[in-house]
Design a binder for these strands. Structure first.
Lengths: 143, 143
DNA sequence: ATACTTGCAAATGATTTGCCAGTGT
DNA sequence: ACACTGGCAAATCATTTGCAAGTAT
């Protein structure tokens, strides 16, 4: 966390209370959380804050490379501390469950894409979507 | 296209003019198009129609398995005739370019995910996102 | 002191929903 | 005839933006 503060200073950005709160909330969340969850205080685990400012600051931190966000299916995007989440995610299109991909899986995926296309994919911005083991059984609808 | 009409009938749904227009537009689009593009008539290549009804009918066709939609980065989702697009897509997070994944690539990806997780991914609902060859050079921002 | 930030309200973009008139079957 | 649909307006969700007041530096 002091690293994040340093990053702000290093970029001439101010270390405001609101920004400290954003970091605190992301830290407390421990995993991908929506801007709304973070701003509403994570059920008391972090101080509440303004949603618009939350978005603005998440974006600021994202540009500094400290935060990233992923979209699990439809609905709100989820933000995480980059330090807490190196790889990509697999998300279930049905129930919303998700897990981080291990480095091995990530490498295998990147290699597969590179072998067949001219794209260099990261799986770091958007997750790999499919059905989790539990939902495979009850197949049917949309994403 | 007559297959789509038959599918409607088979499910007790009505074959209305609006629904024919949706199919016509999807057909004319030839690839993933937004609901707005489809409803506005694709620059004259299809009749214009109501946006809300377009969404409703795209959803209806999606439930019948005739249409599917993908999200290339942020912004509006794009709809395609399932018959025209079997596999998944690779999309560029930077410039919005996208290409279909060949079956080989798709299989390799599915295998990789299956080997490392308990998920059964399709890549058919959401695309694989990364940077296209052109954008790899100028790296930097968000998704 | 001054420019960067905040917080709140209002705007935007995408998609959905309510409702009643219209129309396939 | 009757239930399913279409069209239009209004609502909703996620996110962004305008602005005046507040505060790091």
């Amino acid at each position: 966390m002091p690293a994040a503060i340093a990053a702000l200073r290093a970029n001439g950005l101010r270390v405001s209370t609101a920004r400290r709160v954003v970091l605190e909330a992301l830290f407390a969340a421990g995993g991908p959380a929506t801007a709304e969850q973070l701003a509403s205080g994570l059920d008391g685990r972090a101080p509440q804050s303004d949603l618009a400012s939350m978005y603005r600051n998440l974006d600021t931190f994202e540009q500094l490379g400290l935060v990233r966000h992923v979209h699990f299916g439809h609905g709100a995007g989820r933000y995480v501390l980059s330090a807490r989440s190196h790889g990509g995610y697999v998300a279930c299109a049905r129930c919303g469950a998700f897990d981080e991909l291990e480095d091995g899986a990530l490498d295998a995926l990147r290699r597969a894409v590179r072998a067949h296309t001219s794209y260099e994919v990261g799986f770091t911005h958007f997750p790999v979507v499919g059905l989790c083991a539990g939902c495979v059984a009850s197949d049917a609808s949309r994403a």
